[in-house]
Design a protein around this nucleic acid. Sequence first.
DNA 1: CCTTGCCTTGACGTGGGCGTCAAGGATTAC
DNA 2: GTAATCCTTGACGCCCACGTCAAGGCAAGG
Lengths: 147, 147
Amino acid sequence: MGVKDYGRGMRIGELAERAGTTTRTLRYYESRGLLQAGRAENGYRTYEESDLRLIQQIRTLQDFGFDLEETRPFVDCLRAGHPAGDACPASLAVYRRKLGELDALIGQLQSVRTEVGAQLARAELEASAELPGGPEPRCELNWEDDE
Amino acid sequence: MGVKDYGRGMRIGELAERAGTTTRTLRYYESRGLLQAGRAENGYRTYEESDLRLIQQIRTLQDFGFDLEETRPFVDCLRAGHPAGDACPASLAVYRRKLGELDALIGQLQSVRTEVGAQLARAELEASAELPGGPEPRCELNWEDDE
DNA sequence: CCTTGCCTTGACGTGGGCGTCAAGGATTAC
DNA sequence: GTAATCCTTGACGCCCACGTCAAGGCAAGG
């Protein structure tokens, strides 16, 4: 049989596949201290079902744009036995901080959007104002003494 | 005199200072083909006043979140003799593409913001619902057979 | 002459989240 | 027996816009 015993003592490849990620990613998480694996006699990492939830939590937050460090409280919370990663105050704090960052970022992007939009409009105006009958800019080298 | 002749044939340090950037950055721009410098007899790079405008254009766009490649049309436009970097169609195209990217990004961030906000609200509710008199989650290892 | 301060090229470091070999051991299928 | 597939650790690559250090050349002041 190719697969031994789902539900207990998965190996890294199985867990990665079930989580929709890669073994490299799981080892990376482990190197960051987010994931802890047991070891089989032969040195292979072993995982429990609960680890699948950890990974799903991490990836959900990653999809939201959280960086790995920010997922740590959620992971710790799950490992502490809470049914949800955001059941702990530290996780809520991360949520709130993230909301603030998002609001700030969105605001900045909106102002940039406005600014770029204005630049575009102005440039289009100037372009259309020069075409009709004005003297087309020669594009020569004679404007360096312009100022 | 420490400074030779402002206005003609600046050296890289002077240009960097006047542009509010570093010599490293200017050499980097040159390596990317965005900036071209003349050379003095001793091998030093020499710049004209017009180069200052190029750099200002680049940095303005960078501040908007344009990456270096996206500034190229503007730079080319300025070097072609146009008084503004966005006087060329290629620059306008970059503006428009950027607007689209900004709109998409802002939209994504807003939906993430909504989602995170909802998660926070839900988690806060559940937290407040458990405190009053409910059984505090034991945080033991007995929930792994939950599913 | 010597110091100071500018300039030159070259090359490695940064950060984040992995991808992608490389070299080898373990297990399984045939 | 052996090929295929898993696993292990280690280490370099990537992207981008530079920062930073190294080793040395050139110019000017005292």
